[in-house]
Design a protein around this nucleic acid. Sequence first.
DNA 1: CAGTATCCCTATCGATACTG
DNA 2: CAGTATCGATAGGGATACTG
Lengths: 119, 119
Amino acid sequence: MKEKNAIEPVCAVDYAFKRIGGKYKGRLIWYLYNHEVMRYGELRRSIKDITPKMLTQTLRELEEDGLILRKVYYEVPPKVEYTLTEVGMELIPFIQYLKDWGNKQLEKSNLPAIEASCG
Amino acid sequence: MKEKNAIEPVCAVDYAFKRIGGKYKGRLIWYLYNHEVMRYGELRRSIKDITPKMLTQTLRELEEDGLILRKVYYEVPPKVEYTLTEVGMELIPFIQYLKDWGNKQLEKSNLPAIEASCG
DNA sequence: CAGTATCCCTATCGATACTG
DNA sequence: CAGTATCGATAGGGATACTG
């Protein structure tokens, strides 16, 4: 069994994929890019069928990876805003590219691509 | 329970991520881009610790998605060559971008990025 | 409003052995 | 050489209920 914190050689491609992989990360980043700033409930309503657990979990991972910023307003009722960081913004060109590519493939296969659900 | 083949609205970002997600797909595409054509055993040796099961499985998925081409030579001993398709090639700019981004992040965090293991 | 806490499931991945 | 076949492990995700 390998040690968990052993420093191992890392492939940059793998590294990057892990940082943006996961079921909702791509969409989350894309939403935040298009809306600049979004609150928790707003994100929750945007991503159809996501559970609070998954939303919180995904947001925390993105935050730990330095891709998004979480700003808490200490008031009642609570208010939390999420925005992309500089580093997170650097991923936009690539997600844009991927989105265009995806749409092109979807057209070819006659599957419906719903723009609205992508931000 | 949802029907498996029901046509549902699809988000292009999600769609694209599924097509290139998975533990080895990014690297596999990147290898094939850099070597143009590779045989099964060559890929197996390149991707350290991948099992034949995972390699075959991943290659088949990429093939079904039209990203790679599998060419069989009917001779003894068997020979099979893998190459990127046109559609697969369209992903290169984006993987390149992601790789550069990954390397930049790795530098910042003082983790070792091994170029060799990325193609 | 913005989350936690639990419990559970299954897709994905891994180890090992075998084959046309 | 280029794979299959089988079984077992686990990480990621989902349902539901509850809270500061």
